[in-house]
């Protein structure tokens, strides 16, 4: 039980991706801490990414999923498992407001029903593809 707890904790703190592009101001909220995003900022499970009024930001996750955000956007990655050897594959992201451009990575290719993007009004099931989604305030 203790071992399981430690393993889960280690996985929670793992880097699941990095910020690759940034224009303007954006923040990464990790638990109670908010910090200014930079090109090269790591992303952890559960982090919330928030872009400012004239900002945009692009990031790539470990499985090559590409996410890019327009201005006044807020997203989070709530579940992420990428261990193809163990067949542990899952990506669940959420867009609370703003605009998001999504390009599938390896998880969607290996296990098409393992990827979901949630919006305030529904759940987008992704079958290996690229799309844009807008969520108005």
């Amino acid at each position: 039980m203790l071992a399981f707890g430690l393993a889960a904790h280690a996985e929670d703190n793992a880097r699941i991706g990095y910020v690759k592009t940034l224009s303007g101001d954006a923040n990464i909220v990790s638990g109670e801490t908010s910090s200014a995003a930079r090109v090269g900022s790591p992303l952890k499970l559960g982090d919330r990414i928030i872009t400012g009024a004239n900002a945009s930001l692009g990031l790539i996750l470990k499985d090559n999923t590409v996410l890019s955000l327009g201005p006044d956007t807020e997203i989070s990655v709530d579940d992420y498992l990428y261990a193809p050897a163990r067949e542990a594959l899952r990506l669940d992201a959420r867009i609370l407001r703003g605009t998001l451009h999504y390009i599938s990575g390896v998880i969607a290719r290996l296990k098409p029903d393992a990827v979901t993007v949630r919006t305030p009004t529904g759940t987008i099931g992704v079958r290996g593809t690229r799309f844009v989604v807008k969520v108005a305030d």
Binding site: K20, T21, L22, S23, S56, L57, G58, L59, I60, N64, V66, S68, L69, G70, P71, T73, T99, L100, H101, I103, V132, K134
Partner: peptide, 16 residues
């Protein structure tokens, strides 16, 4: 689509 998503599309990093 371009008006709404131009900024998000332009922020796409080079593909892996």
């Amino acid at each position: 689509v371009q008006r709404d998503f131009g900024a998000a599309l332009a922020a796409q990093p080079p593909l892996p």
